[in-house]
Protein backbone atom coordinates (compact mmCIF):
# COMPACT_ATOMS: atom_id res chain seq x y z
CA UNK A 1 0.00 0.00 0.00
CA UNK A 2 1.08 3.57 -0.66
CA UNK A 3 2.97 5.05 2.29
CA UNK A 4 0.81 8.18 2.32
CA UNK A 5 -2.28 5.99 2.65
CA UNK A 6 -0.64 4.07 5.50
CA UNK A 7 -0.01 7.33 7.36
CA UNK A 8 -3.50 8.68 6.64
CA UNK A 9 -5.12 5.50 7.95
CA UNK A 10 -2.86 5.44 11.01
CA UNK A 11 -3.94 8.99 11.86
CA UNK A 12 -7.64 8.46 11.31
CA UNK A 13 -7.80 5.06 12.97
CA UNK A 14 -5.91 6.36 16.00
CA UNK A 15 -8.30 9.29 16.23
CA UNK A 16 -11.30 6.95 15.96
CA UNK A 17 -9.97 4.51 18.57
CA UNK A 18 -8.47 6.93 21.10
CA UNK A 19 -10.29 10.24 20.37
CA UNK A 20 -6.86 11.91 20.01
CA UNK A 21 -4.40 12.44 17.18
CA UNK A 22 -1.08 10.64 17.02
CA UNK A 23 2.16 12.61 16.67
CA UNK A 24 4.73 12.08 13.94
CA UNK A 25 6.72 9.93 16.41
CA UNK A 26 3.62 7.87 17.25
CA UNK A 27 2.90 7.11 13.58
CA UNK A 28 6.56 6.37 12.85
CA UNK A 29 6.60 3.84 15.67
CA UNK A 30 3.27 2.36 14.63
CA UNK A 31 4.41 1.88 11.01
CA UNK A 32 8.06 1.09 11.68
CA UNK A 33 8.96 4.09 9.53
CA UNK A 34 11.48 6.92 9.77
CA UNK A 35 10.20 10.10 11.43
CA UNK A 36 11.39 12.23 8.50
CA UNK A 37 9.26 10.21 6.08
CA UNK A 38 6.21 10.49 8.34
CA UNK A 39 6.80 14.22 8.75
CA UNK A 40 6.79 14.60 4.97
CA UNK A 41 3.56 12.58 4.81
CA UNK A 42 1.97 14.91 7.39
CA UNK A 43 2.98 17.83 5.14
CA UNK A 44 1.52 16.11 2.05
CA UNK A 45 -1.75 15.28 3.85
CA UNK A 46 -2.03 18.90 4.88
CA UNK A 47 -1.69 19.89 1.22
CA UNK A 48 -4.49 17.45 0.44
CA UNK A 49 -6.55 19.13 3.17
CA UNK A 50 -6.85 15.94 5.19
CA UNK A 51 -5.14 17.32 8.30
CA UNK A 52 -4.17 20.62 9.87
CA UNK A 53 -0.91 20.72 11.85
CA UNK A 54 -0.73 22.36 15.22
CA UNK A 55 0.37 25.98 14.59
CA UNK A 56 4.09 26.22 15.34
CA UNK A 57 4.57 22.46 15.68
CA UNK A 58 4.30 20.41 12.47
CA UNK A 59 4.94 17.17 14.39
CA UNK A 60 1.50 17.46 15.99
CA UNK A 61 -2.01 17.57 14.55
CA UNK A 62 -4.63 20.21 15.40
CA UNK A 63 -7.36 18.54 13.41
CA UNK A 64 -7.95 15.80 10.89
CA UNK A 65 -11.50 16.59 9.86
CA UNK A 66 -13.98 15.63 11.21
CA UNK A 67 -11.86 15.12 14.36
CA UNK A 68 -10.27 17.84 16.49
CA UNK A 69 -7.32 17.18 18.76
CA UNK A 70 -8.15 20.13 20.99
CA UNK A 71 -11.33 20.80 22.97
CA UNK A 72 -14.01 22.71 21.09
CA UNK A 73 -17.62 23.70 21.67
CA UNK A 74 -18.77 20.66 19.67
CA UNK A 75 -18.71 17.59 21.90
CA UNK A 76 -19.58 14.34 20.19
CA UNK A 77 -20.41 11.06 21.92
CA UNK A 78 -20.19 7.88 19.87
CA UNK A 79 -20.14 4.40 21.32
CA UNK A 80 -19.21 5.64 24.79
CA UNK A 81 -16.29 7.70 23.49
CA UNK A 82 -16.21 11.49 23.61
CA UNK A 83 -14.71 13.36 20.67
CA UNK A 84 -14.33 17.02 19.79
CA UNK A 85 -15.15 18.39 16.34
CA UNK A 86 -13.87 21.61 14.76
CA UNK A 87 -17.33 22.80 13.65
CA UNK A 88 -20.98 21.79 13.41
CA UNK A 89 -20.54 20.13 10.00
CA UNK A 90 -17.71 18.00 11.35
CA UNK A 91 -19.60 17.25 14.55
CA UNK A 92 -22.17 15.15 12.73
CA UNK A 93 -19.38 14.06 10.39
CA UNK A 94 -17.97 11.92 13.21
CA UNK A 95 -20.96 9.53 13.39
CA UNK A 96 -21.02 9.65 9.57
CA UNK A 97 -17.36 8.60 9.44
CA UNK A 98 -17.81 5.90 12.07
CA UNK A 99 -21.11 4.67 10.59
CA UNK A 100 -22.90 4.58 13.89
CA UNK A 101 -25.29 6.50 16.10
CA UNK A 102 -24.02 9.57 17.90
CA UNK A 103 -24.92 12.62 19.89
CA UNK A 104 -23.60 16.18 19.53
CA UNK A 105 -23.75 18.58 22.43
CA UNK A 106 -23.12 22.23 21.64
CA UNK A 107 -24.61 25.68 22.17
CA UNK A 108 -26.48 28.18 20.04
CA UNK A 109 -23.78 30.40 18.53
CA UNK A 110 -25.48 33.57 19.77
CA UNK A 111 -27.65 32.80 22.82
CA UNK A 112 -25.34 30.03 24.16
CA UNK A 113 -28.43 27.94 24.89
CA UNK A 114 -27.57 24.23 25.06
CA UNK A 115 -28.41 22.28 21.92
CA UNK A 116 -28.29 18.58 21.15
CA UNK A 117 -28.24 16.80 17.82
CA UNK A 118 -28.96 13.07 17.76
CA UNK A 119 -27.94 10.80 14.89
CA UNK A 120 -29.83 7.52 15.04
CA UNK A 121 -30.25 4.75 12.48
CA UNK A 122 -28.41 6.71 9.82
CA UNK A 123 -30.23 10.02 10.07
CA UNK A 124 -30.45 13.06 12.34
CA UNK A 125 -33.44 13.28 14.65
CA UNK A 126 -35.51 16.32 13.54
CA UNK A 127 -34.39 19.29 15.64
CA UNK A 128 -35.22 22.99 15.27
CA UNK A 129 -31.92 24.53 14.12
CA UNK A 130 -29.99 26.06 11.25
CA UNK A 131 -26.27 26.05 10.46
CA UNK A 132 -24.52 29.20 9.37
CA UNK A 133 -21.19 29.50 7.59
CA UNK A 134 -19.62 32.93 7.89
CA UNK A 135 -16.92 32.25 5.27
CA UNK A 136 -17.70 31.57 1.57
CA UNK A 137 -16.75 28.11 0.24
CA UNK A 138 -13.92 29.44 -1.89
CA UNK A 139 -12.14 30.72 1.23
CA UNK A 140 -12.67 27.97 3.81
CA UNK A 141 -9.03 26.94 3.77
CA UNK A 142 -7.61 30.47 3.85
CA UNK A 143 -7.79 30.04 7.65
CA UNK A 144 -9.43 26.70 8.32
CA UNK A 145 -9.06 26.97 12.09
CA UNK A 146 -11.21 30.13 12.03
CA UNK A 147 -13.61 28.70 9.44
Amino acid sequence: MDFLIDVKLAIYRTFAETTHAPTVADVAQQLGAHVDDVQQAFHDLHKKRLLVPEPGDPTRIRMAPPFSNVPTSFNVTVGGKRYHAPCVWDSIGIPAALHTDGMVRTRDGQSKESMTLVIRDGAPKPTPCVAHFAVPAGHWWDDIIYT
Binding site: C87, W89, T106, G109, Q110, V130, A131, F133
Partner: peptide
Protein backbone atom coordinates in the same frame (compact mmCIF):
# COMPACT_ATOMS: atom_id res chain seq x y z
CA UNK B 1 -19.41 26.98 11.11
CA UNK B 2 -21.85 27.31 13.95
CA UNK B 3 -25.23 25.91 14.95
CA UNK B 4 -28.14 28.15 15.89
CA UNK B 5 -31.59 27.54 17.29
CA UNK B 6 -33.25 29.78 14.67
CA UNK B 7 -32.67 32.25 11.87
CA UNK B 8 -33.27 35.02 14.39
CA UNK B 9 -30.27 34.04 16.49
CA UNK B 10 -28.13 33.86 13.32
CA UNK B 11 -29.18 37.38 12.42
CA UNK B 12 -28.38 38.63 15.92
CA UNK B 13 -24.96 36.91 15.80
Amino acid sequence: MLLFRSEETVEAW
